[in-house]
Structure formats: C-alpha cells, structure tokens
C-alpha cells in the first residue's frame, strides 16, 4: 500500500487530500469521534450536528501526509436526503454505531448498503462501534478519567431511552446528584463478534472505539489511510489541480450532478494551495 520511493519524496511535502464522510444514527458519537481525532478532546453533551460539519486533520503515515477532509453529517433520519451531497466523491466513509444500542447497527447496515450502491466505487468503508467506555471500564482511559467524571453525554440518553426494553433499570432510580457522581455502565447490545462478522461479510474495516477515552480512535483513521489508494488520489488531485490552475475554472461539478445548484464543487482543486501548510500530525 505504500507509495513508490521516487514519488514519496514529493509526497512528504504535499499532503494527500482525502475526503472522508461520517454516517450513522443520531447520537452514536460521530462528532465526538471527529473531535477526538482532530483535537484530542472530548466534550460532554456535544450539540447535535445540523446538516453537516467539516473538519480537516492531517495525519502522517509512514512517509506520506494524509489530510483528511472530514464531513460529519447529521444523524437524524430526516437529513437522509442530504447525505448524497456529502458522501459523493468521498474516498472513505466511517459508519458509526453505538455498541449499547442494537438499533444503531441496523441503521449502520443500511448506510453501508447505500454507500456500496451509490458512493464512489473504491470508497473505503469502516464500521465503527463507539461508546466502549459505557460497557466496561476503559483500560487506556486512566489519565483522562479524572477530568471527565462529572457527566457523560450518554447519561442524558440513559434516561431518554426509556422505551428500550433491554435497558438496565438502574438509571431510573438515580437522583440527580447520584447520576453525576459516577458513570453508569450499560449492557452491550452488539458484541464484537457480531460486528466483526458483519464487517467481514460486507467487506468493511471494523473498529471499536470510545471517543470519550480516546480508545481506538486514531487507529480508525490510520487504518483507513493505509487502505486508501493514495497514489490514485494524489495523481487525480494533481490533475484536477493543474487543470484548475490552467483553465481558471473548475472541472469537477458535483453539486450540479446532485441537482442542488448550478455551482461547481472542486474540493480538490486547491490541493496545491494548501500544500505549503505545515503538517500537524
């Protein structure tokens, strides 16, 4: 998967633009994963994403620098019709589910199907089971545990999911004070085996993460980067970039295709312009 030696010299200077889209049910932790990956932070009660949000983050892989252009989408089913706008031309997709919510895996599966049907042919899809910290004490999160013991975003959801029959009854009785004092664990509804089996069957990468503790988050993006056909992406982006420079206009016209407007979208057109920026791995 690594680039040939002669191109890699140029690669170190020029980050490879990779468009990555995050999909998944509402409140499974998409934005939190991104936040953990991009700034190594975790935010309780992260506000929901409306429409979509963007983040860019560079990542060094062997001798290459990959610049992820992350499109974080809204989870609510209603925003479904907008999704194609975001996943079209994506090089990679991270489909997230919540390991304590079986329904979220079902939603993830339908996203995978849609991606395989509609998105780029070579799109690298990773299935990520998030919220590991809720099901067992995190092994890596010892140092971060201290700063985050107040409330977790999932706490609110605990009380919210009254309709879920499998939910542990313990959260019901907790008073306000007790609730914030310690993290309550929830039973796992999707086992690792189950997730892995599906991922293997559908040809996806599979990870389990906790955005809260940071466990496994970096791996997701590193493995995706490894699996990406970076050479192709680079040469393609160079082509479009130079074409863009020569003609003064943009070739790729995504938005027109999707029928959302007359404007062109050349998200890779200025890859060269940003190449000078230092790497922030």
């Amino acid at each position: 998967m690594s680039a040939s030696p002669e191109t890699s010299a140029t690669l170190t200077a020029k980050p490879i633009q990779v468009k990555l889209v995050l999909l998944g049910e509402a409140a499974v932790g998409k934005s939190s994963l991104v936040l953990r990956f991009s700034s190594n932070e975790f935010q309780d009660n992260k506000e929901p994403t409306i429409g979509a949000a963007f983040v860019t983050q560079k990542c060094r892989l062997e001798d290459k620098v990959i610049k992820f252009e992350i499109w974080d989408t809204a989870g609510q089913e209603r925003f479904y019709s907008l999704a194609p706008m975001y996943y079209r031309n994506a090089h990679a997709a991270v489909v997230v589910f919540d390991v304590t919510r079986a329904s979220s895996l079902e939603r993830a599966k339908s996203w995978v199907k849609e991606l395989q049907r509609q998105a780029n042919l070579n799109v690298v899809i990773a299935l990520v089971g998030n919220k590991l910290d809720l099901v067992r004490p995190s092994s890596t999160g010892v140092e971060t545990a201290g700063e985050e013991e107040v409330t977790s975003p999932e706490q609110g959801e605990t009380e919210a999911e009254d309709m879920n029959p499998d939910k542990s009854p313990s959260s019901e009785s907790g008073s306000e004070g007790a609730e914030s004092a310690n993290v309550e664990y929830r039973p796992r509804q999707v086992t690792t085996e189950e997730g892995e089996a599906y991922a293997a069957e559908a040809g996806l990468l599979y990870f389990e993460t906790s955005a809260k503790t940071g466990e496994g988050v970096q791996q997701v993006f590193i493995e995706i980067a490894k699996k990406l056909p970076t050479d192709q992406i680079l040469s393609k982006s160079q082509r479009t970039a130079s074409a863009g420079l020569n003609s003064g206009s943009v070739n790729v016209n995504l938005v027109n295709e999707s029928g959302f407007g007359r404007s062109g979208q050349g998200n890779t057109a200025d890859g060269t312009a940003n190449a000078g920026n230092g790497c922030a791995c």
């Binding site: 506000e47 959801e157 999911e161 306000e176």
Partner: peptide, 28 residues
Amino acid sequence: PNPTDKQISVDIPRCHQYHSLLGSSTGH
C-alpha cells in the same frame, strides 16, 4: 409517547447545556 420521542430524548441533553436552566433536569 410518539415516534419522535427517541430523537427528542437524544437531543435535549445536548441542547445548550451550558445554560444553567436548560442544563438542569427540570429544564430537560
């Protein structure tokens, strides 16, 4: 109860939680 409850329940604990009223359980 109605089908929207689930979404509402997930969103409310994330809505302007820095605000002392909206962040309280009464506010929820």
